[in-house]
């Protein structure tokens, strides 16, 4: 199974990727939303996308809207992983097409639980 991790912080991409690799995922990384779209075009659909909100070039909210606008990508499970903790922002992200929402800071266990909710765990 493949996951696409999109975050402008290399440290955060590393933390998320380590957790995903531990539970058996192959991980692609992108540094902002536009890079994420390029990765999707180049390498095809992953089993799950984890995307940050605040990024340069294209933020996570814009990325979600762009992904959901393409028929072939509408069913990819998509989780926002962000410090945007206000309820209004969660509602915006879900309305735009996110399937789950994980607030930073988080533990590996919290990430695994959210993946399980999305139905994309390995076991």
């Amino acid at each position: 199974m493949r996951a696409l991790v999109i975050d402008d912080s290399a440290a955060m991409r590393n933390i998320i990727s380590r957790s995903l690799v531990t539970i058996g995922f192959d991980v692609m990384q992108a540094v902002h939303g536009r890079d994420g779209l390029e990765k999707l075009k180049s390498y095809g659909k992953p089993e799950v996308i984890l995307v940050d909100w605040n990024m340069p070039e294209m933020n996570g909210y814009e990325f979600i809207k762009a992904v959901r606008a393409i028929e072939a990508w509408r069913d990819i499970p998509l989780m926002m992983v962000t410090t945007e903790t206000e309820t209004s922002q969660v509602v915006r992200a879900l309305a735009a097409g996110a399937n789950e929402y994980l607030m930073k800071p988080f533990t590996p266990e919290m990430l695994s639980e959210k993946l399980a909710i999305l139905g994309v765990t390995m076991s």
């Binding site: 912080s9 290399a10 440290a11 990024m55 962000t82 410090t83 903790t85 930073k104």
Partner: peptide
């Protein structure tokens, strides 16, 4: 990068506690 993300996480969570609608820089 590590300090930037650490600062972002503390600031992002704090933003939710501030009065009214606020925005966080990179």
């Amino acid at each position: 990068d590590a300090l930037g993300e650490t600062t972002n996480m503390v600031g992002g969570n704090l933003k939710a506690l501030l009065p009214g609608v606020c925005f966080l820089s990179l």
